[in-house]
């Protein structure tokens, strides 16, 4: 036990009575204000539990190093040429992996009594969910930034410059915002945080690896190439690669944004419904 448990002053009944009688009920805040308050909660958690960030950044960092130096020469002729190809892809992968943790965090929340308090408050129903995602997107940005900085250290120089790089990161974060609702639904349906983690990665792994994140799909056998081509992760990787490469692929960008919007349109109401009726 830590020192905090030794601090045990008594409650002061007179002060309690004063505190109870001193506040009239303030006017009810708006929806956005509710969501922002929950977003603040999400960010406080990033601050208090920084090891969560470590979880989601270590794997992608390992992938960058391993793939670049192990396969780079074989796949693209040189490590620096492969870094140009793989870095935007790893950016996509690392942020998408982080979205699984949105569902895990939601499920963890549900095992605690604090959700009962939130649900008994007069706040906008989806606010806790939206707020959590606001906090999560901070995590996405940090995770993505780590990959980009690592790339720069290893000698990656994007032709798209700062604007293209920031654009790619923004696109990936927006896409993840849409995708994370899928994992929120899993988080509400499954029994334990571990089950959410397992199911989430079972879903996200094939989509990430059977894409153009690591290799050019033209070398793949026919049916696999077809899957890789329609895989939204490929489209997103293509879009971010084009942004960072300084030659934006407008159709890939638009398709990625539409995919994110469709995912959100389907899974956000489902999430809200499940959260309300638990």
């Amino acid at each position: 036990m830590t020192a905090a448990t030794t601090t045990n002053r008594d409650a002061d009944t007179a002060a309690v009575r004063r505190a109870i009688s001193s506040t009239p009920r303030p006017p009810r805040p708006g929806r956005l204000s509710n969501a922002v308050a929950f977003g603040w909660r999400g960010m406080l958690k990033v601050k208090h539990v920084p090891e969560q960030l470590l979880d989601v950044t270590v794997t992608p960092v390992m992938f960058v190093l391993m793939f670049t130096y192990l396969f780079g020469g074989a796949i693209a002729g040189s490590t620096s040429a492969y870094l140009d190809y793989i870095l935007p892809g790893i950016l996509v992968m690392s942020v998408l992996f982080t979205t699984v943790y949105s569902g895990v965090a939601l499920n963890t929340d549900l095992t605690k009594g604090v959700v009962d308090r939130f649900r008994s408050l007069p706040v906008w129903r989806p606010a806790p969910l939206l707020g959590a995602l606001l906090g999560d997107s901070v995590r996405y940005v940090i995770g993505g930034t780590v990959i980009i900085v690592l790339g720069l250290v290893l000698g990656y120089r994007p032709d798209g410059g700062a604007a293209g790089t920031v654009g790619a990161l923004a696109l990936v974060v927006v896409f993840s915002f849409g995708l994370s609702w899928v994992f929120s639904v899993l988080g509400l349906l499954l029994r334990s945080p571990n089950a959410v983690m397992n199911a989430g990665f079972m879903g996200i792994f094939p989509f990430t690896f059977l894409s153009n994140v690591f290799v050019d799909p033209t070398t793949l056998p026919g049916p696999l190439e077809e899957f890789v081509d329609v895989n939204p992760v490929s489209t997103l990787a293509t879009a971010s690669r084009s942004l960072m490469g300084g030659d934006p692929d407008v159709s890939a960008i638009v398709v990625s944004l539409v995919t994110a919007a469709v995912l959100a349109a389907v899974f956000l109401p489902l999430t809200t419904h499940l959260y309300r009726n638990r």
Binding site: R25, P29, A37, W40, R41, L44, K112, L121
Partner: peptide, 26 residues
């Protein structure tokens, strides 16, 4: 509630401040 209905990963002050914000204390 029967389970502690506070957020264990926040401080006591943050817990109460969060609820104040949600209820409109600004």
């Amino acid at each position: 509630g029967q389970l502690a209905s506070v957020d264990e990963e926040l401080t006591g002050h943050e817990n109460l401040t969060l609820l104040g914000r949600l209820l409109g204390l600004r």
